[in-house]
Simulated scan of single mutants.
Amino acid sequence: MLIEYLPQKTFIHGLDVRTKLIGFTGLAILVFLFGHPLYNLAVALTVTALALSAGLPFKRTLGFLVPLLPVLVLIMLFSGFTQPDRFVLPANRTVLFYLLPQHNWGLTVGGLLTGCTMLIRLFAMIIASSLVTLTTPIDDFIQLFNKMKLPYEFSFVVATALRFIPTMDRKRLLIIDAQRSRGANPEKKGIIGHIKGCIPIMVPMMINSIMMANNLSMAMLNRGYGCSASRTFLTQISFKRRDYYTCFFIILVVVLGIYMRWGLHMGVL
């Protein structure tokens, strides 16, 4: 998930943070509402189009998914071995082959479709969560926490953690490049080699994190953090006309999806 805010002038950037969270909730309802991968694919393509319009860097997003591909393929295969009686449609109860003798562990068509649905759901949720954090400043999340009557210390801790994750990731890449320039090989093969290769990276990372925490605490003390209970912000989050229209459209789509699933029995396996 991308969590570093990228300022741009797009429609999604101009929406209120509450509108984006409502949209994310509506997306989560839709992707878990339908069991057929085609319906989830339509939702995922819609989210992808919105992400492209907001300038989401897909190369970085897909870079997070590439290391997970073997695990995702195994999940899809294991989900394929599902009991045929769990599916509603007769075509999905078709068994392609049995992994064990005496008709045990049969790979069904519905099971493979279920695995594809899980992968599409994961992709859609990653894109949607990255889209929310990409287009929303940290200050908007802090204001949202304050409007929810949460302690300011809690919102500050969460916002600081989100803010420094991209910074620590950049420092990790710099440390890896520095280790390679000194002849080290942090990407060794095997589990033991990988653990040994992580040690030259983790030690400088821990030292850097301690130094950053110390600098942050000194900066907070110099600015009088904690002297006043009231907090002010440069800009205030507020609902605009486009937020109301967007929320109405999201609710309408979710209601339509619920009607399609439970009223028309569409998207079932």
Rank of each mutant, 00 (worst) to 15 (best):
G197P: 05
M211C: 07
G197Q: 05
R180G: 02
M220I: 09
R231D: 04
I210E: 11
M205D: 00
I175Y: 01
D243L: 04
C247E: 11
M212W: 11
Y245E: 09
M220F: 12
Y244C: 10
I195T: 11
T232V: 07
R172V: 08
K240F: 01
E187L: 06
M220D: 05
M168Q: 09
D177I: 01
Q179E: 09
D177M: 03
T232E: 07
I192A: 15
G197L: 00
S209T: 08
Y245K: 08
M206S: 09
A219V: 00
L221I: 14
S230T: 13
K196G: 00
C247T: 13
T232K: 09
K189L: 06
G190M: 00
I237E: 05
I192D: 07
K189V: 05
R180D: 02
D177H: 06
A184W: 01
N215G: 09
S238A: 15
R172P: 00
A219G: 03
D243F: 13
K188C: 03
E187Q: 10
C247K: 11
L174N: 12
G197M: 04
M212S: 15
T167E: 03
S230F: 06
D243G: 10
G197E: 06
R180W: 03
T235M: 06
R241D: 08
S217I: 08
N185G: 03
